[in-house]
Design a protein around this nucleic acid. Sequence first.
RNA 1: GCGCCAGUAGCUCAACUGGAUAGAGCGUUUGGCUACGGACCAAAAGGCUGUGGGUUCAAGUCCUAUCUGGCGUACCA
Length: 546
Amino acid sequence: MINQTLDNLKLDLKEIIKDLGVEEDIDIFFEVPKDPSFGDYSVNVAMRLARVLRKAPLVIANEIISKIDLKKNNLSKVEVAGAGFINFFMDQGHLNDVIFQIIKENDKFGSSKIGEGKRINLEYVSANPTGFLHVGHARGAAYGDSMARILKKCGYDVTREYYVNDGGNQINNLANSIYERYKEQLGLDCNLLDDYYHGPEIITIAKDLVKLHGDKYLHEEWFDYFRDYGVKYLLNNLKEVLVEFGVDFDVWFSEKSLYDSGAVKATIDKLVNDGDTYTKEGAIWLKTEARGDEKDRVIVKSDSTLTYLTPDIAYHSNKLARGYDTIIDVLGADHHGYIDRLKAAIFYMGYDPDKLIVEILQMVRVLQNGEEIKMSKRSGKAITLKDLIDEAGVDALRYMFSSKALSSHMDLDLDLIVKQTNENPVYYVQYAYARICSLFRNMEANNLEFRESTSLDKVDEVIKELVGLLLQYPKVIEEAATKRLPHKIASYAYNLAGAFHSFYNDNKIIGEDLEKTNELLTVSRAVGIVLKDALSLIGVGIKEKM
RNA sequence: GCGCCAGUAGCUCAACUGGAUAGAGCGUUUGGCUACGGACCAAAAGGCUGUGGGUUCAAGUCCUAUCUGGCGUACCA
């Protein structure tokens, strides 16, 4: 409703600007001012026209506002302020309609069609099944899952995908690692090489194998069995933990399947036949430097095994061949150097490299007792996601990860996150929701019947801030989706909760005047709906009682 | 050396096509329950946005130089 109003206002403004003699099409962008005394919406178009019209922004702004029809646009006031901003004050009754809209649309409020059904493949986590998930994976998981939910809400057709690296050399190392630990369990020497896996989970697997088979595999072929057993065990564990973390996938794509189907071989053949490669020192190189990479890359090593890149080219080709408009990879910062070569390869495979968007997540530094805990693959020392969930809870963790931009190098303080106190903002938001639920429980307990109000005349003055925030929700979601910044949702939820806490403190909601009570409750209900929806977008649950 | 990311309050982080007085939480200080839930509210203190130049009506945001930190710079994955 408000969108319609703003669209109409935009058309009027464009008409006015045209009458001022501006030929070019100026895009008008409504901004919500930080300070409410600057109105509900503002526009900076006068400043931007200053150069074109060779006039002072203030003069232009005044010319524009003299031609605006207030009544037709549901405006109560328009004024010029600051360096030439035009501030719009909307008719409050008109703004209040958002409350009824929210209650009517419920969890559909804030949905949009800006995605136009475009198909997006979103790949995240994709951790190798060679150990348990740790903190870095958790950040990617939280981000990817939230993005998927947000994009869906905006009308994109999203496929959530996990690339299972069950085919490369690392899996052989896994099998060997398990075997060494297996021998160790049986009292023999254990020789873990540097690139083997040193985590405690490998010992667990070895113990299971001893329990199941005794020393049987000291005497017969063990490799394939150990490899498959390990992958299956770790993959199951990883899926379980992710589900507990609220993160799910539509497609688990096996790397191995690319070998089995011949896709990897076909990829190499195509690149070689198209002349995009050359042979040097016994290896086959892909000419990625010509496409913006730092240097050319090996796709077939001189010992005829493949690099990690090769099946990954086949994989990305496979994704693009499935017809997605966009494929998004969420990768750790340690893989950023990988982007150029992948895009180059995609080009050589005949696809548009611009269809691939790579989101890089910066490293998570884990602190305990004020000191950094270094993660090390070699020592196997790592904080697992499972540990974190057990200590801190899913909601606190999801909120923590979701509230920071992906590009920030974040610190995770273990001592802090385990404290279930007001030091963690997630409880502040959940508490606002629980308070709303409590209000309705109290109505029932007092044998009072809540009836949705159809007007909000009695509470006009005290709900302005809440209404203002609720109006912004659809825009916030849209921004989070198009800029791929889910932390916008987290901070929005926080602000809305804060506004509700103030509102709750300033107003006795359940009072003598039942009509007023119902109006305040109607607003509270709308706030509850939006809080719940916003939290759900970042994978955080709500609580009716805390 | 080169490349990517970052540097904002004591700490952890925000800041919407470049916009108005750079905002929150934690911590510190001070007030507020005969109260629908005090995991709350109201307020104070705390800043040359790493540093120097530039672009313009306007710069935390863009350009440039420089310093600091993380990551990368494999015929590893």
